[in-house]
Simulated scan of single mutants.
Amino acid sequence: MVSFIVIHRKRRNQFIRDKLTMEKELEQQLLQSRIEVQEQTFQQIGKELHDNVGQLLSTSRMLIGLTERELKNPPDTLLTANATLGQAINEIRTLAKSLDKEWLERFSFSENIQTVIDRINAGEVIKASYEEQVPLLLRSDEQIILFRIVQEAVQNAVKHASPASILIRVQKEEEGYTIQITDDGRGFDTATVKRNMGLTNMQHRIHLLGGIINIQSSPGNGTNVHIYFPLQKKEL
C-alpha cells in the first residue's frame, strides 16, 4: 500500500512537471508567433511608406524644383518648402528601413541603434547618444528583438517625455548584458501609469531572451529603462 502511494505521488509530480513544461513551451511559441506577425506588419508598413508615400513626396519635390527653375526670383517660402520636403523624404526612407527586418539583419545591433541616434539628432531638438562598453555578439533574431525594445523605449521618450537628451548605454555584466535608455524628460509616476501596448510588447520580447525590464521614473526626474538579459539565452 505504501509503495503504491509513493508511485502515485511520483507519477503525479511528474505529470505536473510535464504540464508546466508544456505550458511554458506553448507560451514561448505563442509569443514567438505574435512577434513574427508584428514583424510582418512592420515590414508591410515600411514598404508602403517607401513605395507609396515616399514616391508621392519625391514627385511633389520634383514639381517644386521645376517651379523654382521657372521663376526668376522664387520666394523664400518655396525654397523652404523644397528643403522641408527633402528632410521629410529622408526621414521616411530611414523610418521605412528601421521597420524592415531584412534590412536590419544586414547590420549589427550597434549600427542599427546608431541610425536611430542619427535620426533623432537630425531634428536638432533632442541630443541623443550611444555608449557601448563591449560589442553585443548576437544572432540576427536576438538583435532584432533587442532593437525593437530599444526602439520602443526611445520612441516613448521622444513622444511623451519632451527630453533634452537621451542616452543609450550597453554594459557587460558577469552573467549577461544590460542596456539602459535614460532621458531627462518630464518623467511619470510608475505606480499610476497604465500598461500600454508598447510596454507589453517590450515585456513579451525580452521574455523570449530570458531577460527582464525595469522602468524607473518619477514626475520631473526623467526615466530610466533598464534591460537585462543573460549570456545563456533561450533558443528562439
Rank of each mutant, 00 (worst) to 15 (best):
I149E: 02
V134L: 01
S218E: 10
K127R: 10
L231Q: 14
L137W: 05
P135I: 01
T190C: 00
S3C: 06
R195K: 12
R195N: 12
G185H: 06
N112Y: 00
I181P: 06
N214G: 04
L167D: 10
L199Q: 11
D118R: 13
N13D: 06
H160N: 10
I181L: 08
G54E: 04
T67Y: 02
E36F: 06
R93L: 09
L167Q: 13
A122R: 14
T67H: 04
K172D: 03
S217F: 05
F42E: 13
R9H: 12
E152S: 15
L231W: 11
V2L: 10
D18E: 14
D141W: 07
E39I: 15
L30P: 03
V53A: 15
K10M: 07
L236N: 13
P219G: 02
K101D: 06
Y177Q: 09
I181E: 03
H50W: 07
E175V: 11
I212R: 15
T84E: 04
T178K: 11
Q40W: 05
I166P: 09
Y130H: 12
G46F: 09
T41F: 07
S60I: 08
D76N: 12
T200W: 00
R169D: 11
D76K: 10
S165A: 07
R11F: 05
K159A: 09
V170E: 00
I5C: 06
V116F: 04
T41W: 03
K72W: 01
K47H: 12
M202I: 15
A164H: 04
I113A: 00
E152C: 09
R34T: 14
R11T: 09
F107G: 00
N224T: 15
L236W: 07
S58D: 04
N196W: 02
I117S: 08
G54T: 11
Y130K: 03
Q28S: 07
E36V: 08
L138M: 08
L20P: 09
D184E: 02
I181R: 03
R186L: 08
R186I: 15
K159P: 13
L56A: 11
L136I: 07
R148D: 11
D100M: 02
L146N: 06
S3V: 07
Q151W: 04
R106W: 00
V37T: 12
S58A: 14
T223F: 02
Q216N: 14
S110A: 13
L146F: 04
S33W: 01
Q44H: 09
L66T: 15
L26I: 13
V37D: 03
T67M: 05
M62D: 12
L236V: 13
E132H: 04
T41Y: 07
S33M: 08
F188V: 08
L20F: 14
E39H: 13
Q143R: 12
K24S: 14
S108L: 01
L71K: 08
V134Q: 04
Y228I: 12
Q55Y: 10
T200H: 00
Q180A: 09
G185S: 03
N13P: 01
M1T: 00
D183P: 12
I92V: 14
E142G: 05
I5P: 05
Q87E: 13
T200S: 06
F147N: 04
N52Y: 12
G198C: 04
V6I: 09
N73M: 02
I16M: 10
D184K: 05
Q143Y: 02
D51I: 05
G176D: 05
G211T: 02
Q171N: 08
